[in-house]
């Protein structure tokens, strides 16, 4: 009887957790930087994200080596020399949606998001604006922000400084399905 009760409790707790969490595997993260020699542009479609509807907590996680570059050599350099993906395989953001969002009501919400972004093993606090769109069957989140490479101890040797911008624009688009 006791066992049954615990099982029931766990199952319902799990269900409750599931209901208040939006999980997205359809996350596109791209970054772009314009430099005199050549533009750097990479996209990953294999990031993951979650939103806790009750608390407003958000999380994004991405495997650094999932970024696809048009030039493969650039991709190799990104992983080997700048991101050091062997040592720091994952970048993540853990934060909170500051402004209230009613996830049960369709509409567009412009909100502020604040939290810690960890790239290259270095964590920094960021605050940015995000747009959250709630429709009948999905929640979509969009945001852009700028990352200064120096803030995350990503060093550019002087010899290639003209080739690589020191600030990159990051763009995120995540779709959280609310219906199965």
């Amino acid at each position: 009887m006791k066992k049954l009760f615990i099982t029931l409790m766990l199952v319902s707790a799990f269900a409750a957790v599931q209901a208040q969490m939006l999980i997205s595997k359809d996350v596109t993260i791209s970054f772009f930087s314009k430099a005199p020699m050549e533009d750097i542009d990479a996209t990953s479609k294999t990031a993951a994200s979650g939103i806790n509807v009750k608390t407003g907590e958000v999380i994004f996680k991405i495997n650094n080596n999932s970024f696809q570059f048009k030039k493969k050599l650039m991709q190799e350099h990104f992983n080997e020399n700048y991101m050091e993906s062997d040592t720091y395989p994952v970048s993540e953001f853990k934060g909170k949606i500051i402004d209230p969002v009613d996830f049960s009501k369709p509409g567009t919400y412009n909100v502020a998001v604040k939290g810690n972004l960890q790239i290259h093993g270095v964590t920094k606090t960021y605050q940015t604006q995000a747009k959250i769109t709630v429709t009948a069957d999905a929640v979509t989140a969009n945001t852009t922000f700028r990352v200064k490479l120096e803030d995350h101890k990503i060093k550019i040797p002087t010899i290639v400084i003209a080739k690589i911008a020191e600030v990159v624009d990051v763009k995120i688009n995540a779709v959280y399905p609310t219906k199965n």
Partner: peptide, 20 residues
Amino acid sequence: SSTVFAQDSLEKALQMPATK
């Protein structure tokens, strides 16, 4: 139990795709 769960399970609920 559900609030306790919610704290860190957001992270656990995320299934990262296998790395290349």
